[in-house]
Simulated assay, not measured.
Amino acid sequence: MEFKLKASAILEKEFKTGLRGYNQEEVDIFLDDIIQDYEAYEKKVAQLQLENKQLKEELAEAPKRTQAAPQVGATNFDILKRLSHLEKHVFGSKLYE
């Protein structure tokens, strides 16, 4: 993506004056506002491009993180806890007396 105009090109632009031309001061004030907008726009685009790059890197690394070793201890504990509840339900409290 290339910009047609840069802030410096707007700043350096000179207009020819005619017999009934525009008020040069008004044009300069308007061009100053345009320059400020272009500079803010260029900064925002650069910021978003950087953020986009970082998010793409995070997205590329996400599968690596999810393929890490599962929490075996937590899984085993959960299974044992469920088994204990099942035993209590099936055999009742007589099993634990």
Rank of each mutant, 00 (worst) to 15 (best):
L5E: 09
D33N: 15
L31D: 00
F91P: 01
K16I: 10
A60K: 04
A60M: 06
Y41H: 07
F91G: 04
G92Q: 11
V45N: 00
A68N: 12
K56I: 10
L19C: 03
K44N: 10
Y41Q: 12
R20S: 15
A46Q: 02
N76Y: 11
I10S: 05
T66N: 00
E58H: 00
T66K: 03
D32E: 14
K4E: 09
I29S: 11
L80G: 08
L55V: 00
T66R: 05
R82I: 10
V72H: 05
E42C: 02
L86C: 12
G73L: 05
G18E: 11
E51Y: 02
K81R: 15
R20V: 15
M1T: 12
L80E: 14
K6S: 14
I10H: 05
E26T: 11
D33Q: 11
Q47A: 13
Q47G: 01
L50P: 02
K6R: 06
K64G: 01
L11M: 12
F3A: 09
G18K: 04
F3I: 00
L86I: 13
E25Q: 15
H89W: 10
T66A: 02
K4S: 06
L19Y: 09
I29L: 09
I34E: 15
D32W: 04
E2R: 08
R82V: 03
E87W: 11
E57T: 05
D37K: 06
N23E: 13
H85Q: 11
E25A: 15
I10E: 03
N23L: 03
L19I: 09
L95R: 11
K81T: 15
I34A: 15
A7R: 06
H85W: 09
I34V: 15
V45Q: 03
A74G: 09
K43F: 00
K81C: 13
V72F: 08
N76F: 07
L11W: 06
H89S: 12
F30N: 09
R65S: 04
E14A: 10
E12Q: 10
L48V: 03
L48N: 12
Y38Q: 05
L50S: 14
